[in-house]
Design a protein around this nucleic acid. Structure first.
Length: 558
RNA sequence: GCGCCUGUAGCUCAGUUGGACAGAGCAGCGGACUUCUAAUCCGCAGGCCGGGGGUUCGAAUCCUCCCAGGCGCGCCA
């Protein structure tokens, strides 16, 4: 509806230009929005004010010209008013709103789907954990965010690829191997040394006993044995990560191995190209890339003086590989502790001829865990951290995902275990789910009374006479533009907020019937009941579609 | 020291990309079940939007300077 209105306004301006009512100028950026104050209409625009300077006329006068031009056409509009310093306030005809509701019922699971992305190919890389240990809460937050964003983008017509980058080339994997090998040796010789900075978690011991059963490490020299342990650990941890993510309802299309990437020779190609452009130089026996040419604060080493490539080098190669695979845009979801790398990666990509905004990086802040009013401190090195798996087992996937998604990614998240465990309405996920279950229950009741949805919703929707009902219809109409906004802002947290607000409006409406029987959905008045069932069906559809985009179930009973 | 993020009710956070009088949930107090599910709803109370200055018709939102907190500033990965 908002998009329609914007379109109408543009058309209207064009006709004002043609008739000479307004001087032809470029159309400025203006907004159509839903005012907080209902007295300001169902929609409002600041268009006249944005035109004031180029037209050299007072906003209210311009508004008058526009209103005059609108008056003739557009059956959509019930009322247009000039208000305040030069706003236009719109009221849409009731029939139009009812048409939207009828459409929601027809579209069902497709309501909100769009071709906004026009098939644009976009690569979303997220989680990308080192396969050196189980996933922790930070990964969970990234998984929920990335997965939900992907669901929304593809619902809106983007062709999305979900990718997990496996950091399996560096010293971390070697250290994993050493840690496992050490634990294996300690099974016989408790005095065997444990590597400095090694992985302390109990899962290392599990891996050690697993490998003991299938592999004769005794027969190998230590170096080979560590190698074997590393490969075994990598493999097992990847399996575990993959199955944990699947349990978390997060799947990936592509798993890229850093090791394979390094072996592919792409790195040499990148270096050659960078050298050819003159953005590579040697100093102190190392190779440097001139990232300062593209907004970085200092140049960066990509090959150390010992001949080893830095992590940064493979990162550049990796991102160029994404580009070569034909994606017109890339989104990375990183922990906020990596923010220092954003500019240098972008700089390196620009040095290779890419546009700066080809890559956008979403940084997610830390997750802190709270229980009984105190913070549970976690340390990966010491192996004292709560895993995503434990959290899922403890509070369930629905609550975990919802609580991760409900906050903006750039503010730190306090995860309250006590709250997450609660099976009541304090827990926002149940509040929303309950609204859905309640509607399902209403339909069961209606069926008992022999009532169901009408064949032709438009014939009965005129019976939605309560202001609460009409406001609900208008609220449902916002869903598509909400999703469009999320595609642009990469802020899925707006969806749970919207759903919570919708659930609240529904619960409020439902409760009208507890005092006044005529306000119940199912009454003896058949046409009115049918109209209200339409409304309930519309709400149910939006709740279902919205929850699905969050990866949260919509239960029929609770 | 430099860079990024954050600062809104006692607590946790929204705030439609600069709009009209600042919102919600929890916590507190007081109410509503012979019901389509009370996992719900209604009412009361609670604010110098960290602070100062600026930009304009208009600022929680943009600029600038402070203050406080988090994170990052390796030829580590």
């Amino acid at each position: 509806m908002k998009a329609k209105l914007e379109h109408i306004l543009r058309q209207c301006l064009e006709s004002c230009f043609e008739t000479g009512g307004l001087v032809r100028t470029p159309i400025p950026d203006f907004v159509v929005e839903i005012p907080n104050n209902p007295e300001h209409g169902q929609f409002a625009t600041n268009l006249p004010m944005t035109l004031a300077s180029s037209q050299k006329r007072p906003p209210r006068e311009i508004a008058g010209v526009i209103v005059e031009a609108l008056r003739e056409k557009h059956p959509l509009l019930e009322k247009v008013e000039i208000a305040g310093p030069g706003f236009l306030n719109f009221t849409i005809r009731l029939e139009e709103w009812n048409r939207v509701l009828a459409e929601i019922i027809t579209l069902g699971p497709d309501y909100g789907r769009s071709d906004l992305g026009a098939g644009e190919r976009i690569l979303v890389e997220f989680v990308s954990a080192n396969p050196t240990g189980p996933l922790h809460l930070g990964h969970g937050r990234g998984a929920a965010l990335g997965d939900s964003l992907c669901r929304i983008l593809s619902f809106c017509g983007f062709e999305v690829a979900r990718e997990f980058y496996i950091n399996d080339a560096g010293l971390q994997i070697r250290l994993l191997g050493e840690s496992i090998y050490s634990r294996w040796r300690q099974r016989r010789d408790p005095a065997a040394p444990f590597p400095e900075g090694g992985y302390m978690g109990g899962y290392i011991e599990t891996l050690a006993s697993e490998i003991d059963e299938i592999d004769a490490l005794d027969a190998l020299d230590p170096d080979e044995a560590v190698e074997r342990c590393a490969e075994f650990g990598r493999q097992r941890m990847l399996e575990e990560i993959r199955s944990d993510l699947e349990a978390f309802r997060t799947t990936f299309d592509i798993w890229v191995s850093e090791k394979a990437l390094v072996a592919s020779g792409l790195l040499d190609e990148v270096l050659e190209r960078t050298r050819a452009r003159g953005d590579l130089y040697e100093q102190d026996g190392a190779w440097w890339i001139k990232t300062t040419l593209f907004g970085d604060d200092k140049d960066r080493v990509i090959r150390k003086n010992d001949g080893q490539f830095t992590y940064f080098a493979t990162d550049i190669a990796y991102h160029l590989d994404k580009w070569k695979r034909g994606f017109t845009r890339a989104v990375n979801i990183w922990g906020a502790d990596h923010h220092g790398y954003v500019q240098r990666v972008k700089a390196a990509l620009m040095a290779n001829g890419l546009e700066e905004d080809w890559l956008s990086v979403i940084l997610i802040q830390l997750v802190k865990l709270w229980e009984g009013g105190t913070e549970i401190r976690m340390s990966k090195r010491a192996g004292t951290y709560v895993t995503l798996r434990e959290l899922m087992d403890e509070v369930g996937v629905d609550a975990t995902r919802f609580l991760f998604l409900v906050k903006n990614h750039d503010s730190p998240l306090d995860f309250d275990l006590d709250l997450a465990r609660k099976q009541d309405s304090d827990n926002p996920v149940y509040y929303v789910q309950y609204a859905h279950a309640r509607i399902c229950s209403v339909f069961r009741k209606a069926a008992e009374e022999g009532m169901s949805l009408p064949e032709e919703p438009l014939e009965v929707l005129g019976r939605l006479e309560l202001e609460e009902e009409r406001a609900l219809v208008r609220f449902l109409a916002r869903f598509p533009s909400l999703l469009a906004d999320v595609c642009g802002s990469h802020e899925p947290h707006r969806v749970p907020y919207y759903l919570t607000e919708l659930a609240s409006a529904f619960h409020k409406y439902f409760n009208l019937g507890t005092r006044i029987p005529e306000h119940r959905i199912v009454t003896r008045d058949a046409p009115r009941t049918q109209a209200r069932l339409c409304l309930a069906a519309g709400i149910r559809t939006v709740l279902q579609n919205g929850l699905l985009l969050l990866g949260v179930h919509a239960p029929e009973r609770m």
